[in-house]
Every structure is written in structure tokens, then in C-alpha cells.
Design a protein around this nucleic acid. Sequence first.
DNA 1: ACATGCGGCCAC
DNA 2: AAACGTGGCCGCATGT
Length: 546
Amino acid sequence: MDPATLLWSRSLVAVAPCRADDGAGAVVVTALDGDAVVLLDAAGRALLARALRDRDRVVAFADAKPALRWLLARGIDVARPVCLHTLAILGGVEPQASPGALSWSSSLSSSPLAARAVARAVLDGLDARLARVEQRGQRKVARLECLVLRAFAALEHRGLPIRRARWQELVDEEKRAAAAARARIFALAGDHVARDLFGTPELNLDAEHEVRGLLGRAIGHAVDDSNRATLAALRHPLADALLQWRESQKIVTTYGDAFLDHIVDVDKAGVGRIRSTFVPLGASTGRVSCRDPNLQNLPGNPRFHEALRAPPGRVLVTADYGTCELRIVAELSEDPVFLAAFARGEDLHATVASSMFGVPVSKTQNSELRQRAKAINFGLVYGMGPAALAASLGVDRDVGEDLLNRYFRTFPRIRSYLEGSVETALSRGYSETVLGRRLFFDPDALAADNARGELGRLMKNMPIQGTSADMTKLAMVRLHERLLERCQGAAGLVNTVHDELVVECDAVAADVVAACVREEMEEAHRTLLKRVPPLVEVHVGETWTH
DNA sequence: ACATGCGGCCAC
DNA sequence: AAACGTGGCCGCATGT
């Protein structure tokens, strides 16, 4: 069929990219009544670009994100993608349940013939996948998850800007620090470490059991593990040196050579790009995961964030939802003190402490009480118990228990909300976010005696963490479309870290873009949460700033 | 050469 | 000391 006719006359098409003999690639477009191969020469690209950016045309893919990224690299943007892979996850379709899935879900087919089979399988499978999604009540979630793939494809395509040489310097500094700490360790260890003929210590600091053995010999005190808390509690120079070595070595190994290898396209100003893979449904709660490399756990140290710098004439707009998860708790529990504190823009931790202890509290007045309230606020999101609270505050268990009792006595709505989360999940078999995102539990796990323990914490946490994910993804969809309208390709997302967005744009557009980011994030919040106002903190700078 | 589990640790 | 949620990456050790 004539490609132009097929593309313009159909509101639903399946698209599969493939290699082509000319090397530029091709796209197979399939509708219910025919297919067309579009070669990506200048004319083909123009035709596809016009047809696929049309908001009234749904474009289905086997696995949309890599396909969208492949198309973006060829100047083609898709306004309304649908992703069968995403629908399968939300529909609870096991990978084994769709035989041959691997054969047609690969993002780039080797020939138009293979791509045609993929596109037809997509069209054939779409209704069944949608039915499963509908059956699970995940239609709204599916719509969001499909639309957000467009933003993620663009984010990956653009890449995070980074000053390669500066990052290398920081890693080199850590290499020197690690070597110095290593020398201190072996000096302090003395005869407790065996040495070879040349005096080289025969102990591998990377081997946890060898480190424990050394600690046992040198300090005369056996330890069950060698994690940071244990080493710190030893209060021994050797343990301190080990902690310093671990800290530096972590940077060197995780953010060193392997990380630097991901930097590509370094420009004349020394700014390169990292194009990671984001997995929008990477976490069971609805959160995004990120890999190769993970851009969601970069060192918080400002020196590293300052190495993430836009090219000359460009800036980074960074924005995050302040106290996002506690606002969600306030919304869902309807606790009057929480709601009032957020409505008035108060310091929530101080207000909570003041309510609990009946005395005035601020960052300067009775700040130790504020610290306790903050620890509880932080932990309750995770379904924390008294022991964990005591540990995080460095107090005895019974003190932790008293604190938690006092907390729930002061905020009974929070207790009943959290208990309600568990009851609802146990009776329905799933936990749910504000948008309606569901996490279904294994019936065997629900039937287990300890379902209220480990599973209970997950049931308390999922609606909170998941609603935060709903909000950030909604903001991404809104912002991506807004920036396309406002700035064409000149501004775009370059990272997202759970409750934070990072956008790169021209310096002269910084104020306009910052306002867009704020508005779309606030509007995403208001779409989901009606009782709590949004708090979006926005920064503009040449580097990633907090 | 790959995969898996684990301890440890980075982020939110 | 830790006994709270979600991830990914490192090295080691063990398996195929």
C-alpha cells in the first residue's frame, strides 16, 4: 500500500523499525488492512515525522522506548505511543505466557520482512493486552506509562551533560585518598597481616571475610559483619582507616573508569553526554529504575554534582518536590495537624514535635525534639517499627517504643491510615496508589502467618512511594509536551531522580523554562492531591544544584 | 564465558 | 549494632 495513504488515513498503526539495505534504516507501518515500508530517506523521514507527531494517531510498538529513541535519532517524534511490553507488565502477563515474545520484542528488526511480522503481531496482540489491563483496573496507569515513554526516550536521547575531565579529576583524588587509607590500614595492622617475600601484604581489602579476620586479630574482638555501623562502633584507628578506604574506594570503583566509559560525544568545551537506560516500571511500586549507568544514585557530594554541567550558553534547571511523601501521607490520612501545617507552609517536623511534646519547637528551639519527630516522619513512610526508630536515633528500644506510641496517640489518623492500608491490601490482594496503580501480591504470601510483618511494611509503603512516582511521571508527560510547544527541541529533560527533574535549556530561556517546570510539576501534584498544596523547589545554574 | 547470591553502599 | 521501603553497581565466591 502507498505509505502516505496508509499513514494519513488510519488513526491506529503499528510501527516497527528495521535495518535496510541503504543503511539509513526503514520503518514498517501496519494497519488492520495493509502494510507499507517507509525508507528513511529525506522524503520518508518527512512523511513519518508529520504523521507520527499527530496527536490523533495512536502508534503501537512491541517495545516503545527503544523504538522511540531510534526514531528520535532520525528526527521522528511520536506523540501518542502505545507499548505492548508496558501493557503486558501492567496486565500481569508473565513473559512465559506470551510464547515467541522474545522473537518480536527486539527493538530493531534485521529486515523489513521481520519488522512486518513484528508490527502485525503488535496489532494482533493489542486488544488482548488492553483487555488484561482493563481487567486489572490499570487503564489510567497504562495511559500514563505509555505517554511517559515519549519523555523517557527523549531524555535518554539527549543525555545528561557532564564535564569529563573534571569528573576524572575527582575520581583521581579519590584514588589517592584510597591509596593513602590503604597504607594506613597496613601500617596499623602490622604483624596481623601476612606478607610475601617482598613485604607485600597478603590481604584483600575487598574480601569482607578477610577484613573481619584482620579486625578479630588486631582488635581481639570478633565481629559478625563489617558494615559501616559496626566499624564505627569499634572506635579503633584501624576501623576508622577501613571506613575511609571504603568511602574512597566506593567512588573509585562505582563512579570511576567504568562510569567514565559511558561518557560520549565530548564537545570542544569538554562537555560530554551520558545516555543511560531508564526502566519506567523498574520498581514494583511504580518507581523508575536506571542503569548503564545508574544516574539515580550519583554521589550527593556537591563537587560531583558541579561536574554535571551544561555546555556553554546552556543551563540546568533542577526542581524537586519538597517533603513529597509526607504530603501524600497528609492527603491520604487526612490528619488535621499535618494538613494544617502544610496549608500554612510550616516546618512539618517542628509542628509534629510541638504537637507530640506540647512545647514550642523549631530548628533552633528544642531542636532535639524536632530531630526525633523527623526520624519518625521519615521512618513511618517505610512502616518502621520501634527498634528501627531507636536505632536511627541512637536511643534504647523502649525509648523508641514510647516515642512511637506518643506519635500515634498524637496523630491517630496516621495510625488508622497505615493500618487501613494493610487491611485493604490483605482483603483485596493488592496495594494501590492515588492514580490507581496497583501492586498485586502473591496469594501464598498473603496467606502466610507473617503477612502483616514484612508484607505489611510494603503495603504501608507502596501507596506512598507509588503515588510519588505517579506524580513525577505525570509531571514528566506534561512538561515534555509543554517544552516541545514552547522551545521545540531547545529545552528538554536530562535526568529524573524519583521526586526530582533536571532540564537543560538555553541560558536566555532559563526563567521561562524554570516557570514551565514549576507550573507543570505543581499541576501534576494538584491533579493527584486535593487537600495538600504542592511545594516545588526550583534552581537554575550552569551545574546541577540543590 | 556467563549466571547467581551475598555483603556493602550510593541515591531517593 | 541493628532490627524500616525502592532500586543498581562493586567485588568476591560459587555455580554452570
